[in-house]
Design a protein around this nucleic acid. Structure first.
Ligand code: MN
Ligand code: MN
Ligand code: MN
Ligand code: MN
Lengths: 220, 220
DNA sequence: AAATATTTTTAGGGTTGTCTAAAAAAATAG
DNA sequence: CTATTTTTTTAGACAACCCTAAAAATATTT
């Protein structure tokens, strides 16, 4: 069964809300994520339910069937492999690749993902530190702490970012904050919960909101 | 102005018919190429005319404006660069890449083609020997003769194939007939114009139809 | 030049995916 | 437990793209 890009995007959205953000995939949440209207979501959910890709009861949050989950996982795999290709081979900045991967992830061919994976050397994490599921659908795991939840004196390296927003990532570039960059957490500023941290021996400040979207691997 | 994949496919089709096959792009010719119906073509041509991408008068063959030509050329560049990537980097067989490139050619990003071109080392010809237009829209030129038009004793190497059909290319694989393969033309068989030729010291036969779709660079 | 065949366009309709506005259901507050 | 607010669904419409069948225009024969 072949799915339209729109159908695929809905499956991805439901996966992101339920499995990644651990929220309920209700009509509005999906509409917000996909920048569409609740009525459009209802329509599409019904179609996906007929195709046995989601479980749906009127007025209840929707969930993926096994089949739907497999497809969503494969799309995430595709998205993240393409992002890796764009950064590692085409020398794109990590801030620019998300919207291109949104298009590339829908390219259909039986062998493409495996060949791309092989070519890239079976990467485990994408340029934003997000885990790339294996062909079998397993996500590599890792111990991470949100930068916003460190304690004074904690040291570590940036392991992932939780947003793909271009302006957010560009701002991190300015501070040399990229994946694997060592940092030291200094303290939280009482005034508005901003974070003070040391990067390459320089002190910088990050808003609470930005700090919430940066994950750290703590050094022992 | 951003164009749908369908609109882009029509521009490519008109380019192929007028500039490559040197025929008139009338409604039926386009419908056959795009495997659609004449009435659908008329509808789309009208839309493209409003957008000033084609010149259209009722009942007359259609032609591309400069703007339409630039877009078509860029799509061909995209298609052929992606085919090159698939064969040279992902190790696809040349017989499998066309349908994937049909999808990839529509990916939109300002920098993508230039980065891909740079990464591939500015290739001049794609895996089928077709010229890859430069960023400026110039097609590399070459002296070619159709295999069907050689004379007994002529030697040369295969420089391109005129069809992307998977079964055609797979059949060529079986005979070791790939780009740059040296061949010697033996003779035409009176019975049905089949071609006898020597490949790696072995004699083989090709149907007239296949020979018409293989281009040769003659050796002096 | 008229008759016939072919090509192109128009008319009307179907599907997919979107939207707004209104109705219905569920959740929340008093 | 009712009243109000919020969320979800339904109804109806629209744009893009494609289709079939019929009409109109053009090309080819006789
Ligand atoms: Mn992304
Ligand atoms: Mn990513
Ligand atoms: Mn091709
Ligand atoms: Mn090609």
């Amino acid at each position: 069964m072949s799915l339209s890009s729109a159908e695929q995007d809905y499956l991805k959205a439901i996966f992101a809300i339920t499995r990644i953000e651990h929220r309920q995939a209700n009509t509005n949440a999906i509409a917000v994520l996909l920048k569409t209207k609740a009525s459009s979501v209802t329509d599409m959910i019904k179609k996906l339910a007929v195709k046995k890709l989601v479980k749906y009861e009127k007025y209840k949050p929707v969930s993926l069937t096994n089949k739907g989950q497999k497809i969503a996982t494969s799309l995430i795999r595709s998205h993240r492999l393409w992002e890796t290709f764009l950064v590692e081979r085409l020398e794109y900045d990590w801030s620019r690749v998300h919207s291109i991967a949104e298009q590339l992830e829908h390219i259909e061919d039986d062998e493409l993902l495996d060949k791309l994976d092989h070519y890239l050397g079976y990467p485990k994490f994408d340029p934003h530190g997000d885990p790339i599921p294996t062909k079998e659908g397993t996500f590599p795991q890792r111990d991470e702490t949100l930068l916003s939840q460190l304690n004074p004196g904690d040291c570590g390296t940036i392991s992932s970012v939780l947003q793909d927003d271009e302006s957010f990532l560009e701002a991190l570039n300015q501070l040399n904050l990229c994946i694997n960059q060592p940092i030291e957490y200094i303290k939280k500023i009482d005034f508005d919960q901003s974070i003070q941290l040391k990067i390459n021996d320089h002190i910088h400040i990050l808003s609470e909101n930005m700090a919430k979207n940066i994950a750290i691997q703590k050094l022992p």
